[in-house]
Design a protein around this nucleic acid. Structure first.
Lengths: 196, 196
DNA sequence: CCTACCGATCGGTAGG
DNA sequence: CCTACCGATCGGTAGG
C-alpha cells in the first residue's frame, strides 16, 4: 500500500518534470512560472508543491541526473581497452546520442544550470570541470601516442563538446535530418579533425 | 549644441547597454531587473527610461547589431576571390575573432535572443537561417570542387558554428588561453575536419 | 535625474 | 487537490 502511494507520487512528479522541461526550453527557466507549469498539467500552482520541493529543485534534479549519466559513462570508457582515439570516438557518439534522445534535459542542463542555487551551482561546475579535464587527459595520451593531432587538448575538448551541443540548433529549427546521418557526419568531421 | 546633446545621450545609452550586457551574461536576461542595471550604474531605475525605450529594446539592439556585423562580413567574403575552403576559413576566423573581442554581445545574442518580442524574434530567426544557408552554399560548392570532404553541408555548418560559439565556455571558466593559440588550434581542428 | 507609485506577477504557505 | 492569500519584486509611468 505504502509502495503504491510512493509509485503514484513518483509518476506524478515525473509528469511535472516533463511538462516543466518543455516550458523551460521554450521560455527559459526564470520566465517559466509555476502557474505556467501547473496550467500545462491542468492543476493550480499550489498543488504542485505536494509533489515537488521548489522550482529550483526541479532544475537541480534535471541537471544532476544528466551529470551523473555522463560521469558513469566516462568511468566505463576510461577503464575500457581501446585506443585513445577510440575512447574519444565513443565519448563523442555518446554525447550525440544524449543530445538526440535526451534533448530536453540536455538543453536545460547546458543552458539553465546558471540558475541553480548556492551549493548546487558550484557542485555542478566542479563536476563539469572534472569531466572535461578527464577528457583532456585522454586526448593528451592520444597525442603522446601519436594517434591524435598535436592540438591544445583543452581547446580540443571544448571545441568538440560545443560542436555536439550545437545539435540543439537542429531541434529548435525543426529541420529534418536523419539521426544516423547527423551522427555519422558529425563523427567524421570531428574525428578527421583530431586524427593524426 | 543639439549635436552635443545627442552625443551625450548616445554615450549614456552606451554605458547602460554595456552594464546591462554584463548583467545579462551573469544572471540571464529575464532575471536581470532594471533595478539591477540602474544599481550597477548608480542611478534609480526610472532614470534609465530617459535613455532607453524598454528592457526588451536593449536586447533587440544588441542582437541586431551583431547580426548586421555578420551579414556585412559574409557579403564581403562571398564576393571575394578565394577558394571555397578559403572562404570558410575566413568565416571561421571572423567568428572566433568576434567571440573573443565582442564576447559579451555575442554571448547575449547567442543565448538570450529567444526573449525578443513579437516581430523582432522572427526577424532574427530569419536572418540567422539566411546566414547559415549561405554558409551551407559555400560548403556545397567546395564539396563539388573536391576541396571539401563530402559531408552533409547543413550538419557541417551547424557543427562548426556551434564549436566556435563554445569559446564562451572559455570566458566563463576564466581559463587562461592565449587568443592566438585558441584561434590556431580551433582553425586547425575544424579545417582539417573539413578538408578533403 | 529623483520620489512616489501603478497593476501585474512571482514563488510559496496556510488551512482545509 | 483546492481557495485564499502573503510579501517581494517586476517593468514602467506620472509628475516634477
Amino acid at each position: 500500500m505504502a509502495r503504491i502511494i510512493a509509485l503514484e507520487n513518483e509518476s506524478k512528479k515525473d509528469v511535472i518534470t516533463q511538462k516543466a522541461s518543455l516550458l523551460f526550453i521554450k521560455k527559459g527557466f526564470p520566465s517559466t512560472s509555476m502557474r505556467d507549469i501547473a496550467g500545462a498539467i491542468g492543476v493550480e500552482a499550489p498543488s504542485l508543491y505536494n509533489h515537488i520541493t521548489s522550482k529550483n529543485d526541479l532544475l537541480r534534479e534535471i541537471c544532476f541526473r544528466i551529470s551523473r549519466v555522463f560521469m558513469n559513462h566516462l568511468k566505463k570508457v576510461e577503464s575500457s581497452r581501446q585506443t585513445s582515439l577510440g575512447k574519444i570516438e565513443a565519448i563523442i557518439r555518446f554525447h550525440i546520442y544524449m543530445m538526440i534522445h535526451e534533448f530536453e534535459n540536455m538543453y536545460i542542463t547546458n543552458h539553465e544550470w546558471i540558475h541553480l542555487h548556492a551549493p548546487a551551482v558550484s557542485d555542478f561546475k566542479l563536476q563539469r570541470r572534472n569531466y572535461r579535464s578527464r577528457l583532456s587527459a585522454i586526448l593528451k595520451k592520444g597525442i603522446t601516442k601519436k594517434q591524435i593531432r598535436k592540438l591544445n587538448a583543452d581547446v580540443a575538448v571544448h571545441t568538440m563538446l560545443a560542436a555536439i551541443n550545437g545539435i540543439e540548433g537542429w531541434h529548435r529549427s525543426g529541420r529534418k535530418v536523419d539521426a544516423r546521418e547527423l551522427e555519422e557526419n558529425m563523427v567524421e568531421f570531428l574525428i578527421e579533425g583530431l586524427k593524426k
